[in-house]
Design a protein around this nucleic acid. Structure first.
Length: 230
DNA sequence: AGCTGATCATAT
DNA sequence: ATATGATCAGCT
């Protein structure tokens, strides 16, 4: 699938897969449906990427570079609440000065195509349905808060106090481990200004934030949101 | 039940 | 090791 030439085309593609089950889309894309996600955590995201023509690979940039749009699947449980936090990107813990304006977090969150997917544990993976995708941009207030969260975390990193930052920090944007396991290490400034190492981290959006995003959509778009009653 | 810290697969 | 796609699983 070639990348969409426009945001309009991207939305059209998203509309064409909404309502489908993951098994149906998997068949169309030639994906095998795993029994569960225990060893296939990124399966849904990769499948949706494939269907929409996202640029594959592990590049630190939005999924649709030409459009400046990032793609995120959002597992939604009963009650319409996100079942998980949303990974944004790796956190630069090397201590180099960064600015919010050019940060990867901001670039990724400037424009996101959210694709809700049924995520209730009771529904077999293949039977989960793809919801109605929608384009989102942070409001000024949201970006201001995201920037504040980001700045607090980045400040701690810069002065070598990354280890005092836990997932409890940040109203909407938090820092959490992002590694193969707890023994993984990456370069980071030490408390004394000397080179050191630490567990790699990533930025994540709290589910309370993505819940707001979903709620705003509901309020903006005419009901019935008619989410399949399962 | 929700949250934090840990973990899994894959590509480069 | 670093980046992507995320969810898992133990603890409060």
């Amino acid at each position: 699938m070639l990348p969409p030439a426009s945001v309009s085309e991207l939305l059209t593609r998203a509309g064409e897969i909404s309502g489908m089950t993951l098994a149906q889309l998997a068949a169309r894309r030639g994906f095998a449906v795993p029994p569960d996600q225990q060893r296939h955590k990124g399966w849904t995201g990769t499948l949706i990427e494939s269907a929409l023509g996202a640029v594959s690979g592990s590049q630190p940039q939005p999924d649709f570079p030409a459009l400046g749009v990032e793609l995120k699947t959002l597992p939604v449980g009963r009650g319409g609440r996100p079942r998980e936090s949303t990974y944004v990107c790796v956190a630069p813990v090397d201590g180099r000065p960064q600015s919010w304006a050019t940060s990867l977090v901001r670039r990724k969150l400037t424009c996101v195509l959210w694709v809700p997917v049924e995520g209730a544990a009771a529904i077999p993976l293949g039977e989960r349905r793809i919801g109605t995708a929608f384009l989102w941009r942070p409001t000024e207030a949201e970006e201001s808060q995201l920037c504040a969260d980001w700045a607090e975390i980045m400040e701690a990193i810069t002065i070598g106090e990354l280890d005092r930052i836990s997932a409890r920090h940040g109203k909407w944007l938090q820092l959490r481990p992002k590694a193969a396991d707890a023994r993984a290490r990456t370069r980071a400034p030490g408390a004394d200004g000397m080179p050191g190492q630490t567990l790699p981290r990533g930025f994540y959006l709290r589910s309370a934030f993505t819940a707001r995003i979903l709620a705003r959509r509901s309020a903006t778009i005419r009901l019935p949101a008619a989410w399949p009653g399962r």
